[in-house]
Every structure is written in C-alpha cells, then in structure tokens.
C-alpha cells in the first residue's frame, strides 16, 4: 500500500515537504486551519513544480500525478489514517504542544508523530502526548525541494522502532538522513552558529566590513554564500531567534552568545531580503 503522510501547517516548510513527498509517489494530506492558506500553498507547489517541468527536471505527467496526490484538508480528523504526521507550524512551544496533544488523540495508535522544529526540544513536545515513544523530530531544510538533508531527531523517550521507520520514510521522500540526539540546534543549527557568530563579532570588532567578510568566506573558504548574505536570506529575526533559543537552552554557554549588533538590526526592522533591507539593501532603485 502506498505510504501516506499528513502535514500540519501549509506554510513554506509544509508546502515544501508536500511537494517532494508527492513527487516521490506518496499520498499527502495537507492540513491547515485556514483554507485560504492551503489554497495559496498548493498554488505555490504548482508553481514550483511547473518550474521543474520547464527545466526538464520532471515530466508534465509526473507533475500531474504528484499534484493529484496532494489532498487539501481542513479537518484534522481526516489525518487519522496517515502513516506519519509531520508538523510544520509556528516555532512556538505552546502552539506545538497543544497541537501534539490533539494529534495524539486523533491519529491511529501506530501513526508516527513528527515535528519539523529547528530549535525546540522534541522531548518537550513529546511530553504533551500519552505515547512519547512515537514522537520524533524530522528536521527538513529550506527550500525543501533543493536541500537533500533531513535530521532525524531522537527524543529522550523516542523508540528505536520510530527512529527506524522515520528514517525509511525520509529515504522514500528522497532525502539523506543523519541521526541526532535531541540537543539544542541538533547538528546543523548548532555547528553553524559560529559561521554567523564569528562573522558578527569580526564585524563589530571592525576587522572587516560586511562585504569583505562575505567575499573572503566565499573566495578563501569556498563557501557558496557569505554569512551576511545568508543571514539576510534566512531573516535576521529568524537567525537571532535560533541563536537565542540555543543560547538559552545551553544555559548561557558563551560560545553561543547572540550578537548585540544583530539584535539591534532586528529592532530596527532590518530583517534582510524579506523586508528589503538587512546587511544589504534590496530595494529596487
């Protein structure tokens, strides 16, 4: 029987996961409380797949079939038959806990409950359910259809069976997996902290400018993007909040101390690309 996944939250990440899963012949139930959000989300998936067709990455037939596999859902009870439900809502522990409590009641008892959190504790989210052994982290990266990785995050009480099945499902979606314990930032968001943190510190110490640091990191280090370009793309508000979250959870380990400079940028509304101004100016002249 074909695998079926439920996705809760039809934002950027939810849409991205639905997109790749459907292309890998998996039935997707895309759920959101807001019908309009789902409509726009499916439109966006359609747009992205069309681009894939234009670039000859997928055929028109592939696209048609994939789009047919995505079902729009506004009733959470409709997710009861899914093999796995992947949550991709707001990064807010209260919101996620409330949702998992509900999913625990709605979902079939064998269904895996996965969270796409990037910086919250999987163990803490699992504590809202009666069966924490079936709760796991499944951390996708943005943009989901381009980034190959999924971090499979084992909470304190997650069962080995849940880890095994989740890993298999991730592979079926065409992803590479790594396994990580439920610790702040998991692997990527933890090991990448200094990429941003040291760059911000170098800037505030006046060692080099934003442009110079980006230029050096790309051309001396061979990185695809410089730290400031990347912060602008991710959003300085999002980047700061991940740093703050890791810093808090690590009980203020100085290695993770956020930069006052970035905080000030966020306060000034200089979020980056999405607000047209960040470390760089994106306003059309």
């Amino acid at each position: 029987m074909a695998l079926s996944i439920g996705i809760v939250g039809a934002g950027t990440m939810g849409a991205g996961i639905a997109h790749v899963a459907a292309l890998h012949k998996i039935n997707v139930s895309l759920y959101d409380i807001n019908e309009e959000v789902i409509r726009r989300s499916v439109e966006r998936i359609n747009f992205e797949m069309k681009r894939g067709v234009d670039k000859s990455k997928i055929s028109e037939e592939d696209m048609k079939q994939a789009m047919n596999r995505i079902k729009k859902r506004t009733n959470i009870n409709d997710l009861d038959t899914c093999d796995i439900i992947i949550e991709a809502v707001l990064e807010d522990i209260r919101v996620k806990k409330d949702l998992f409590k509900k999913l625990d009641q709605v979902a079939h008892h064998t269904t895996i409950l996965a969270t796409n959190t990037s910086s919250l504790s999987v163990t803490s989210i699992a504590s809202a359910t009666k069966k924490p052994e079936r709760v796991i982290g499944m951390h996708f990266f943005n943009p989901v259809h381009l980034m190959k990785l999924v971090e499979v995050v084992k909470g304190t009480l997650t069962s080995d069976e849940t880890v095994k099945r989740t890993t298999e499902i991730a592979h079926q979606i065409g992803k590479k997996t790594v396994q990580t314990k439920d610790t702040p930032g998991f692997i990527v968001n933890r090991v990448a902290r200094p990429f941003y943190g040291e760059a911000l510190k170098l800037l505030s110490e006046g060692v080099a400018s934003v442009q110079e640091i980006d230029h050096i990191v790309k051309n001396s280090g061979g990185f695809k993007m410089g730290p400031f370009e990347l912060m602008d793309l991710i959003g300085n508000d999002v980047n700061l909040s991940v740093t703050e979250s890791v810093y808090e959870q690590m009980y203020h380990d100085p290695r993770f101390r956020p930069s006052p400079l970035q905080k000030q940028m966020v306060e000034a509304g200089l979020f980056g690309k999405k607000s047209k101004k960040g470390f760089y100016n994106y306003e059309e002249l």
């Binding site: 990266f141 980034m147 190959k148 990580t180 692997i187 990185f223």
Partner: peptide
C-alpha cells in the same frame, strides 16, 4: 571546534556531522 564539541557530547557521529553540514547548509 563546535563540530568536535558535538561529537564529544555524543549528539551525533562524525560522519553524520560532515553529511549534515554539506547537505543541510551547503558547506564545501
């Protein structure tokens, strides 16, 4: 240094850390 702390704290094994940084955030 942070990658070694991550191994030391038994968060993940070295191979997975390398894979994660190359495919999760495009490190060279």
């Amino acid at each position: 240094n942070e990658a070694l702390f991550t191994v030391q704290n038994d968060v993940a094994n070295p191979k997975d850390i390398d894979t994660a940084m190359k495919f999760g955030t495009n490190y060279p």
